[in-house]
Every structure is written in C-alpha cells, then in structure tokens.
C-alpha cells in the first residue's frame, strides 16, 4: 500500500442532537475530523461520549425522528453526504461504506445460511450472476479464515469470534472504501480479539480500506490505528497521530485515561482514577466540558470553551493549559 494523502472522509463541525419528549440530548457538539485513504483512525472515549452517533451520522442511519443533524458537513469522496437523497445513500451504504457492530448478530440473519448472506450483499451492489456471487462469497469466507465448506451453515453454528469474522467478510465483500467498526472486538475474548484485530489489520491494509475504529480500549488503538481522536462529551478534545497521543498526551482527560489503566509492564500501587463522571448530555456546562473533573482546572475553564489549538503539526487539543494564548 503506497502512502496516499488523498482525504477520503471529512467531517466538519458536526453537531447532532436527539430530541425526546421534553429534553434535548447534545450527543455530538462540533466534531471535525479527516480520514485519509488507507488510514485507520481510532475514536476513543467512554460510554455515552457520542462515538457511535458520529459513525451513525456518517452512514446516515441516525434513529429518526429523534436524531437530528443541526450543523456541519460530511464530505465523502468530495460529495456532501448530508445532502444526498436516501436513494443515493443506499447505493453508498454497503458498497462504499460498510459498518461492523459490536454484536455480530445484529448484522446476521439467524435463519439464513452465512454464505448466502455474503453472496446477497455482493449481489446487491454488483451486477454479477448468482454463481459468481457464491464463488466470491466462498473466497471472502476463506479470506477471513473460515473454510469454504462452512458456506451452508447457519449463524448459530458459529462461535462469537467466527460470527464476527463472517460479519467482517460481509462488510468487506464489496470492497468498500471506508469501514466503520463500532467496538468490533469488545464482546470477544482477548485471544479471539487478537485474532480478529490481526485479521482486520491485514485485510484493510491489503485492500486499502480506510477504517474508523470506535473503541474504548487504548490498547486496541495502539495496535491498530495510525491516528486517534479522543472523544469526550460529544467533542474531540485531543486529536493526533498515535505517537502524538500516546507519547505526548496534552489534554488532562487523555492523561487521566492513561493513568487509570492498570498497566502490565509496571506495577503501580494505586491507580489514579478520574474523579466524578461525564456531564449530563442534556445539560452541558458552558465552558470546558471536562472542567469539573479536571485536576488542573483554572478559573477561565468554567467560563470559556477552549478552542482547537495545534501545538505541533497534526496534533490538536482543546485545553487552555496547552493554549495559553487562547485564554
């Protein structure tokens, strides 16, 4: 895979709100990110940070009518996805952009043979004969390490790891440009997770697929991604290459995440947890969203939202500690 610098996906200042009967949930609050061709970007954050909502918005599968994009643009191969009609989106979905969910059973039909499900996905976007589709489907199965003899089996005959492989095969069957993987290995055991991650890494590298990997596991990010966006309360608080984030974390939240991880290599007496909890997304604070939990919070933090600041090239952070001039 040659080093390619064409931007495939660009999200600009995206805001998504959910309206329920009497409250508004601010799920995504001005997210900007760019994904180059062949790049793997990790979206890291805690439960409820808005990671999944970002992915769903890109794919245009927000739950309606509660979910609304209130601001922003999403460019995929130069076209604004938010302006496309449902019919045009259908063409892109599954063909150019595919998604993998945490629970493989959400993507698999329990009463259809797995091989046929892959073949069907291929036929949906390619004008090929049934026999050809079956042939491709078998190739895909082998590519993810499942013998082609299992083509005729049903999802329940597969273990969790195997099911996730089938889902990956299905997602990659049409050779998509972009793969959205939402916690693809969280439900799996570590040894199986290692296998599945290795498989994903290998396949996406070979096919040149860009990946948006959503996870809460910093270990998975380190072993899989080239760049990382740390998401907190619907905002990207820190964004950079893996090296930037792991070797030189600047935002107190990112630092806090690293400190609260039990580490295999060093023995720590006590972990350093981040105090408190994430703010209520229906009632976000005026200033920095992390302010209440931050050990270094200053007087300004509660009043003013820090802007994006770029201390080194390709590494941005939203924090006044780094951006002294922004105060």
């Amino acid at each position: 895979m040659e080093n390619n610098n064409t931007v495939l996906l660009e999200v600009k200042d995206l805001k998504v709100e959910f309206h329920t009967d009497d409250v508004t949930v601010h799920a995504v609050n001005g997210v900007t990110l760019a994904l180059k061709e062949g790049e793997t970007l990790g979206l890291v954050g805690e439960t409820g940070a808005g990671k999944t909502t970002i992915a769903r918005t890109i794919l245009g599968i927000l739950p309606k009518p509660q979910g609304n994009v209130t601001q922003g643009e999403i460019f995929f191969e130069g076209a604004d996805m938010l302006r496309l009609s449902e019919k045009e989106m259908k063409k892109i979905r599954g063909d150019k952009i595919a998604m993998i969910f945490q629970d493989p059973m959400t993507a698999l039909n329990p009463i259809e043979r797995v091989g046929d499900q892959i073949a069907e996905a291929i036929r949906l976007h390619n004008r090929i004969s049934h026999a050809e589709a079956i042939c491709r489907s078998m190739e895909m199965l082998e590519m993810v390490g499942i013998p082609r003899e299992r083509y005729l089996e049903f999802p329940h005959q597969f273990s969790g790891g195997m099911k996730q492989r089938v889902v990956i095969a299905m997602a990659l069957a049409c050779n998509p440009k972009l793969l959205l993987a939402d916690e693809p290995t969280t439900a799996l055991d570590v040894t199986i997770q290692a296998q599945v991650l290795a498989l994903m890494r290998d396949l996406t590298h070979r096919l040149g697929t860009s990946v948006l990997l959503i996870t809460h596991d910093l270990g998975v990010v380190a072993s899989t991604c080239q760049s990382v966006a740390v998401v907190y309360a619907g905002e990207i608080v820190e964004y950079g290459t893996v090296r930037h984030i792991f070797n030189n974390p600047l935002h107190p939240y990112t630092k806090g995440l690293f400190d609260s991880l039990p580490n295999l290599d060093e023995s720590k007496k006590r972990l350093k947890p981040i105090k408190g909890m994430m703010p209520d997304p229906t009632n976000l604070p005026e200033g920095c969203t992390f302010c209440e939990r931050c050990d270094y919070a200053m007087e300004i933090c509660a009043r003013k939202k820090p802007a994006e600041y770029e201390p080194e090239e390709g590494h941005t952070v939203r924090c006044f500690l780094a951006d002294k001039e922004g105060i």
Binding site: Q193, A194, G219, T224, F246, L261, L264
Partner: peptide
Amino acid sequence: ALLSAIPIPKVDA
C-alpha cells in the same frame, strides 16, 4: 498466549 494477546496501550509495544 493469553498474555501476548492483550493489546498494550503503548506505541511500538
């Protein structure tokens, strides 16, 4: 094998 499968949160680990 179990130990080696744990993803380590470090670059170039």
